[in-house]
Simulated scan of single mutants.
Amino acid sequence: MTDLTAAAVRDRLGLDGTYAAWTDALEAAHPAPPPAAPPRGAELTALLRAVGVPEREDAELAAALAELAADGSPYRWLLDRAVAALAAGLGSVGVDRGGPGSGPTLPAALGAAGRWFHAGVFLAAVPEVRAYHARHDVPDDVSWATLADLGNKVGVHRRLHDVGGMGKQWWISLPYSGILYRLGRLQFNLDRDPDAGRGLEVHIPEDGPLDPQACEESYGRAAEFFPRRFRTFLGAAAAGGELRLNCASWLLDPQLGAYLPDGSNIMRFQRRFTLDPGEAAHVPEPDEHGLTVSDRGIVEFVFRRLVRTPADVAALPARTTLERAVVAHLAAGRHWGAPRGSFRLPVPG
């Protein structure tokens, strides 16, 4: 492996110039990293269950990991350095989504090894992440619930593409970098808001109803969990007796109120947040196909489908109130936004 360079790796894997910045950064920052150690056999099976990967993916994923970890291969060169980059960034709130520790999606021509590469990086990094959690007194149940988001993204990949693999590595870099944690129904990550200082970003996993009581319980857990373990980062935000919780999501789009009952879980979740000035009226511009980034985002989340045009949206099987709302809104020539809102959360003394 020592004779490989970033340029040689790109050449052997057929990576074009769009991969140069990532591979060159890995080479510069980690010229001789320790070898990554992806789990194998029974250890791998146990870990896959712990992080929520469905059993149907085991055989292909195990074969892909063996290929990725083969001595002297260009995959191994990438794997060792990507794991080292992820470990070096643990606890960094400035983690760059899509940066060296996660990296871009590999070409489809590479087959299963390419589709599973980023899952291999995160699986090999689990011991480092778990050690970081232990140093910050993160309970085991919170640690594993947090890391299980990997399995969720494996499931999303299967539903979107009808083939095994894991995408959205830019997102998984958050729970696997020690700054995002799942606390009950919701996820929270340390956030440096340029306008409002330091606080928490709120995220909504897709698994189950958005029950208001469960959300309130999560907020309460966050108010105890983060100041106790990350007071140095939060600083004055925690010392002042309250935290700012931020959320940017289609769930906060006030246009949903025209379609959903006032007492629905989504509308009750939405009312917990006050939209930032100007956010309520802001909707992104559509692309050349007539859809915005937010349009595609809400369709992917609600239907787990990838759409290209409004005609693709119109063909979706809309069965629930929310599904019908998404389709009807776009069919009327309107667009969805993902506004940003916040509220203040008291911190226990």
Rank of each mutant, 00 (worst) to 15 (best):
L79K: 01
A37Q: 13
L106Y: 03
A59F: 05
V347C: 07
E323A: 02
T321S: 09
T274S: 07
L86R: 01
N189G: 06
E128M: 00
P33W: 04
H136T: 04
R304F: 08
G120S: 10
R229T: 12
G41R: 03
A318P: 04
R228M: 11
S177Q: 09
D137A: 13
A63P: 07
D191A: 04
H157D: 15
P205H: 09
G278R: 11
L210D: 14
R76Y: 10
A222K: 06
R324Y: 05
A134R: 07
A236P: 05
G14K: 02
V129E: 03
Q270H: 10
R10Q: 10
K153L: 13
R231I: 12
L243S: 12
G91Y: 02
P339I: 10
P31E: 14
L86P: 08
V163D: 15
G184L: 01
D253R: 04
K153G: 00
E43T: 07
M267Q: 14
E323D: 11
A325Y: 03
V163R: 15
N152A: 10
G164H: 10
G241S: 06
P212E: 13
S218A: 11
N152V: 09
L15V: 13
A6P: 01
G184Q: 05
F303D: 09
D276H: 12
V283M: 06
G235N: 09
G297I: 07
A124M: 01
K168E: 15
